[in-house]
Design a protein around this nucleic acid. Structure first.
Lengths: 120, 120
DNA sequence: GAAATTACTTTCCTTTTGGAAACTACCAAC
DNA sequence: GTTGGTAGTTTCCAAAAGGAAAGTAATTTC
């Protein structure tokens, strides 16, 4: 008799695994959590503000990631009627639902660093 | 006066951002959460078991990701004295600390899918 | 009119990631 | 001795991700 999947074949696990895949498809990449985390702290920030806040990011990646996040309704982009024009980015209400996840991630990372230091 | 980072320059934010980077450096990639999630359900599983449980993964990626996870003390690999030899993989106690994060991720992904369906 | 600021986009390049298929190696069953 | 199961490794390749630098375009300041 040929063996097949048993654990992940249960409906509950299948849904959970798909949830993981779905979440990762929106949030993967080097910068998304940093951008979202910064916008959660800063509420509304301009493009150059974000560029300055997020250490190491370049204009191309920032622009591309913001577009991705906007498409997925996690961030809003508003062109202000100023001279010179400015653009403000904010996190959406829906984007704010990521707050527990981002906090968990940051917390785990901080604890991990501690645990490595303790073990040496 | 030249502007510089204000939000992420605060010590608390710097630590948080580093936490995010640290966590992501261990957990990035297409398969790690799936492997860890499966091992949390299945407790101890052989290589072929994991290959069967995790839909879509191939031997190369499974092998490589398991090595990564083992190196970071999230998974243990034990060669059993059976004939033919079998290998069992389990999640470590430390690996289990990822449970809240994985649950958050899965939960958010499930909710996201729901919200997309509702909006159409 | 030259420099600086806002907000990007484009191009070119390197690195990383991931997958398919084939191969190794050991052992058991038939 | 051939098939089938264990547990991988290796090779070869394609696609995705990411970065540096230059370019675009509008306006304001000096």
């Amino acid at each position: 008799m040929k063996k097949s999947a048993t654990i992940n074949a249960t409906p509950i696990c299948k849904i959970k695994m798909q949830g993981i895949s779905d979440a990762m498809s929106l949030l993967s990449g080097k910068w998304k959590f940093h951008i979202l985390g910064t916008l959660m702290e800063g509420d509304t920030l301009g493009f150059m503000d974000l560029l300055r806040e997020i250490e190491g990011i370049g204009t191309k990646m920032l622009s591309k990631e913001l577009q991705d996040l906007e498409m997925n309704n996690l961030v809003t982009r508003t062109v202000m009627n100023t001279k010179p024009i400015t653009v403000k980015y904010s996190i959406t209400e829906y984007g704010k639902t990521l707050s527990p996840l981002i906090d968990e991630l940051a917390k785990w990372g901080i604890d991990y660093r501690k645990s490595v230091r303790e073990r040496g």
